[in-house]
Nucleic acid binder design. Structure first.
Length: 393
DNA sequence: AAGTCGGGGAC
DNA sequence: GTCCCAGACTT
């Protein structure tokens, strides 16, 4: 390592390599803000401390841990992508009860899979899960492959999910890098910059790789997630209970509220749509399967139009009734990651499809009268489900 | 590198 | 209201 006579060092930009930790460091009592990481000193102890914490304070009763089969680990990891544990648990229980193993999933219909996923969001996860199960039957004898590249080749499985599956299902030594790990490593090692930026993410991967223990890989992976989710939380982390508090750069610098660097914000566009809530004489609702790409792909939703002119045009072409003979419900606001949707619902009762349409169920996109009893068997977007099951709708 | 893809928990 | 969560995929 080259000599650095100058006391002043470069500011800790995102590219500061972890391996350039200072060889010796006063444990405290220095007012000079540390500008290098302590990873080389901490690395030998990191996993041990995390595992010791996990044995006492980790989560040991999650549904996918008993039994911890590859299929259940995989399903849980997909459901947990961008979704909190508390939300996933009931979906997981319902899913494995209906489809208890990989071949059962492979043989299930798309509507059944989407119905089991309905309300959980990010529906491409369900489509990818289903497709991956079929591929495992074709290529891997109905099992998940115990191989990083083979797992990543399956739809819906990236490097982090593959690492989680390999470590948790088989105890193989592969790192993960989810939101929890990004947050913890950014704080402990003082990694600056938004973790979503590829350059910063790359550095975090290399840190995660360098910290892998040589045993207890399943527990280690679970420990990291539990640690991030319950102790090193985004707001108000419990540093006083933390086994890494003496080494954590964010803690020592009083910057736990600044690390990880938040995503740069930007204003969200707003879109609006007229949604048509049409009921026939039996009170059934007219649903329409959405296109196979785009938002809510392949789910059953209400017919919609970008404005009233387009809505009236669609109505006159498809419905036997009067567009103006409708009641209006309160607007429904729904936020997505990248835009806001404002829905104006209009309700008709006792209408029918025009004869030419009623005789042609193959129309694209398909239309279908659906009774309330059938709602549970279909994939329906959460705000639409709320709307059509609301009293007086 | 930036955009697309849900829903809800926690603040 | 905002931010983000056991991310992956497309362009």
């Amino acid at each position: 390592m080259s000599e650095k006579p100058s006391k002043r060092k470069a500011p800790p930009v995102g590219a500061t390599p972890v391996a350039t930790a200072s060889r010796k460091r006063k444990s405290d009592a220095t007012g000079v803000a540390p500008t290098t990481t302590v990873s080389s000193a901490l690395a030998p102890h990191y996993a041990d401390r995390l595992l010791a914490w996990f044995d006492v304070s980790g989560r040991h009763d999650l549904p996918w841990q008993h039994p911890r089969t590859p299929y259940r680990v995989w399903l849980s990891e997909i459901m947990l992508q961008q979704t909190q544990v508390r939300v996933v648990i009931p979906y997981f229980e319902r899913f494995v009860a209906a489809l208890p193993d990989l071949p059962a999933l492979a043989e299930a219909s798309q509507d059944e899979v989407m119905a089991l996923w309905s309300g959980l969001g990010y529906y491409a996860r369900a489509r990818n899960l289903h497709a991956a199960a079929k591929r495992c039957v074709e290529l891997h004898g109905g099992d998940l492959p115990r191989d990083l590249d083979a797992l990543v080749a399956l739809p819906g499985i990236g490097r982090s999910t593959a690492g989680a599956i390999l470590s948790q299902a088989w105890g193989d030594p592969f790192p993960i890098l989810d939101g929890n790990v990004k947050r913890v490593l950014s704080r402990v090692f003082g990694v600056e910059g938004w973790p979503g930026l590829p350059a910063n993410e790359k550095r975090l991967w290399s840190i995660a790789e360098s910290l892998l223990p040589d045993a207890r890989l399943a527990d280690y992976t679970q420990a990291q997630m539990d640690f991030g989710a319950t102790l090193c939380t985004r707001h108000d982390p419990a540093c006083v209970l933390c086994p890494l508090q003496d080494d954590c750069i964010a803690r020592r610098e009083g910057r736990t509220d600044e690390l990880p660097t938040p995503k740069p914000g930007k204003p969200l566009p707003e879109r609006w749509a007229v949604v048509l809530l049409l009921r026939d004489a039996e009170g059934r609702v007219l649903l329409q399967r959405r296109p196979s790409t785009g938002i809510w792909a392949a789910l059953w939703s209400l017919p919609e139009a970008p404005d009233h002119d387009a809505a009236r045009h669609w109505f006159d072409a498809h419905i036997d009734g009067d567009y103006d003979d409708a009641t209006t419900l309160d607007d429904v606001h729904h936020g997505f990651t990248h835009y806001r949707l404002l829905m104006h619902p209009r309700v008709w009762r006792g209408v029918a499809l025009r004869g030419a349409i009623a005789d042609n169920a193959d129309e694209t996109p398909p239309l279908r009268w659906v009774s309330r009893a059938e709602f549970d068997a279909l994939g329906i977007p959460a705000p639409v489900r709320t709307l059509i099951t609301r009293p007086h709708s």
